[in-house]
């Protein structure tokens, strides 16, 4: 592992085959020293990049970011020039992750704030159990296609799927999309055949208010990857929302509720 200072508060680390523990503790050390930008070169799948750091630092990753990139992220902005593996933005709270490539499974799991932009495709179970509370609303945007269980158990936040890499005859999303969804909203560019959708959701055409949100969120994505916003918005979007915030409300009963007449 080689560490270089490139000016005042910019550093470069050549990671190579160094263990993630070494790389990450070096990054933390540099941030404590006041680094504003850390460039990681030759990243060969080192895990947990960006975790455990508070504050506004920019981390650039050249190579392939390992699993759980930005897990529990709390402020930093990470940009990956390459692909990322599983768990991008897992349980993240604040900050931004931009991946100029593809990402793997379970990205954005339990995410509750910040932004994740993936330029290419993602794997299974992406955006599952995202949450939202008042001003804390996470946004996860996928430029390409997604695998099965996209947005499963979603409880809040905004999940957007663009399918820009989709070729004729390909599906934009896999099976069981939005299964168990009980909060938040999913926007998909184009149509989603109902056979791919969980039974807890309904499909709408976005209204003006939706388009405002969509345009605002997509602006960030369009800027990040230099894709004209008009081009992204050139196709109609599908809006997916849950039918109920209590999908399992009628699943359980007990003697007292029956006696009391709460369950009829």
């Amino acid at each position: 592992m080689e560490v270089k200072s490139l000016g005042e508060d910019i550093y470069e680390i050549v990671c190579g085959t160094s263990h993630y523990r070494e790389v990450n503790s070096k990054v933390k050390e540099l941030v404590l020293k006041g680094a504003k930008k850390v460039i990681l070169r030759e990243v060969y799948g080192q895990r947990y990049i960006g975790t455990g750091i508070k504050g506004k630092v920019k981390i650039e990753v050249y190579g392939t970011a390992g699993n759980d990139l930005g897990i529990f992220l709390f402020g930093p902005e990470i940009e990956v020039f390459g692909n990322a593996q599983d768990g991008v933005g897992n349980t993240m709270k604040e900050g931004k992750i931009i991946v100029r490539g593809h990402a793997g499974d379970v990205c954005g799991y339990g995410m509750r704030g910040g932004k994740v932009y993936i330029e290419g495709d993602v794997g299974y179970r992406v955006g599952i159990h995202m949450k939202g509370y008042k001003d804390l609303v996470p946004t996860f945007i996928v430029g390409g296609k997604a695998g099965n269980f996209f947005g499963e158990y979603m409880a809040g936040g905004i999940l957007i799927l663009l399918g820009l890499t989709k070729r004729a005859g390909e599906d934009i999303v896999g099976d069981y999309c939005a299964t168990g969804m009980h909060g938040g909203v999913i926007f998909v560019r184009g149509e989603v055949p109902s056979r791919y959708l969980g039974k807890e959701v309904k499909v709408f055409e976005p209204d003006l208010e939706d388009m405002k949100i969509l345009t605002k969120e997509l602006k960030g994505f369009s800027d990040a990857f230099n894709i004209p916003l008009d081009e992204i918005l050139s196709e109609p979007f599908t809006k997916i929302v849950p039918v109920s915030t209590r999908p399992y409300g009628r699943l359980y009963a007990h003697r007292w509720a029956v006696a009391r007449g709460l369950i009829k």
């Binding site: 759980d68 599983d86 768990g87 897992n90 379970v106 799991y109 509750r112 179970r125 599952i128 159990h129 949450k131 939202g132 509370y133 804390l136 499963e152 158990y153 409880a155 809040g156 168990g180 009980h182 909060g183 915030t245 209590r246 999908p247 399992y248 409300g249």
Partner: peptide
């Protein structure tokens, strides 16, 4: 919990990661 008032707080059976 960081979820809206009145919504079910559902923990999935497995950790999906």
């Amino acid at each position: 919990r960081m979820i809206p008032v009145g919504s079910d707080a559902i923990s999935p059976a497995p950790h999906h990661d």
